[in-house]
Design a protein around this nucleic acid. Structure first.
Lengths: 139, 139
DNA sequence: CAGAATCCGGAAAGATACTG
DNA sequence: CAGTATCTTTCCGGATTCTG
């Protein structure tokens, strides 16, 4: 039993943490890592195999070279992506997922599945909301 | 077969989309929704049952009233949260997860599980990276 | 209590130019 | 090619004040 249990009904199947004795389940750790605008897209692309810098930039579409650098550096730092430099000229670098990073793709797939499964429902909900609330500035 | 198949080796078990014929798998939809700073925390709290505005604000800890309003409004608009107003005085409002929203908690749990499982590995990777790259400004 | 409206600072992201 | 270095702009989010 959690010492801070409030007596509120908490169905086990709806408790995302499995227990309530820590504030955010550490979820923020993941989200801070893949919740940004580009990380997931880069991971998805790398799931298709190693890619070079330019390949990634072309594949992700819309990402600036600056953001790609930052994104890929962070992923490297977190041990999700391996960066390999080949001492050729001009320089050649490739990026590939590490074991941990590959495991992430399973998570991403879960996200994609859920997204696809509910995308229309959400779109409808939005539409309905927008009709009932003619002038809002949400989003 | 995908018409845009490039011939690159793409192990099915690493393909997060299941297919490559769309750019981002719609993942961005989900991430734009739960990738922000507070949405997940609110959903997690609501997984414990209906909450009133103030209860949420106290529970989430650190969230401003403004951000709570915005967060909960977006979730409502997307049909993930149901907002109920009781015409009492003073006003009383409660928020609860919809069916779709409850389904989200499974996703969140997956995130939490992955996070907990790899948190130490990632921490070590970071530490190692920071040692080899004494002065970087990543993050 | 449950918000709405406003102001404001800092961080994130984009664009661009330059380099090994 | 694969970045780094700047500069500019955008916008997220906090603090505060006011209302039904």
């Amino acid at each position: 039993m959690s010492p801070t249990h409030t007596g509120v009904t908490t169905p086990a199947e709806l408790d995302p943490c499995g227990r309530h004795d820590h504030p955010d389940c550490g979820i923020r750790d993941v989200l801070d890592r893949i919740g940004d605008k580009w990380s997931v897209l880069v991971v998805v692309e790398l799931a298709g195999g190693p890619r070079r810098f330019r390949e990634l930039q072309r594949a992700v579409e819309g990402i600036s070279q600056r953001m790609l650098t930052l994104t890929v550096r962070r992923l490297e730092r977190d041990g999700l992506v391996l960066r390999t430099v080949y001492p050729t000229v001009p320089a050649q670098v490739d990026y590939r997922l590490t074991g941990t990073g590959a495991g992430l793709t399973h998570l991403v797939k879960a996200l994609a599945d859920w997204s696809l499964a509910h995308r229309s429902a959400i779109a409808e909900a939005r539409h309905a909301y927008d009709l009932e609330h003619p002038d809002h500035d949400i989003r």
